[in-house]
Design a protein around this nucleic acid. Structure first.
Length: 120
DNA sequence: TATTTGACCTTTA
DNA sequence: GTAAAGGCCAAAT
């Protein structure tokens, strides 16, 4: 029984490399209205083998709030920099430039029909 | 079974 | 303009 939990995984996995999104964007895209849960879902994404690039998810301010939950606090920044995203002081530079809207790429009608399968 | 916490965002003072 | 409080859903204790 897929919950919104799985939806977050699905959307996050659709995030293109070198791009970053925010919890609010995902929450708004999924019409959850609860940005808090988005991060919470990603929290478990590490324990699970979801393969969700949580490092591409940052808060509205572009801060790597989740770095604390990574294997190493600097790992998140390293991963972003490796993808071409300039990160400084635990914050994404040019967030607006690297910002990625799910609705723009996936479409408003996009839905995780095969969440458990890993999306189309 | 009920209460608290959780990687946040938005609105009001 | 900055600062503080409220609110959403779900999982863990």
């Amino acid at each position: 029984m897929p919950t919104y939990f799985d939806l977050v995984y699905a959307v996050t996995r659709q995030v293109p490399p070198g791009r970053v999104t925010t919890y609010g964007a995902i929450a708004d895209f999924l019409a959850l209205g609860a940005a808090r849960m988005v991060g919470w879902a990603l929290n478990h994404s590490f324990s699970e083998k979801t393969g969700v690039p949580a490092h591409r998810v940052v808060n509205r301010k572009g801060e790597l709030s989740g770095r604390n939950h990574f294997p190493t606090p600097t790992l998140m920044q390293e991963m972003l920099e490796a993808e071409g995203v300039r990160v400084e002081d635990n914050r994404v530079i040019d967030l607006d430039k690297h910002f990625w809207h799910p609705v723009e790429d996936l479409g408003e009608d996009w839905e995780p029909f095969d969440v458990e399968n890993g999306i189309a």
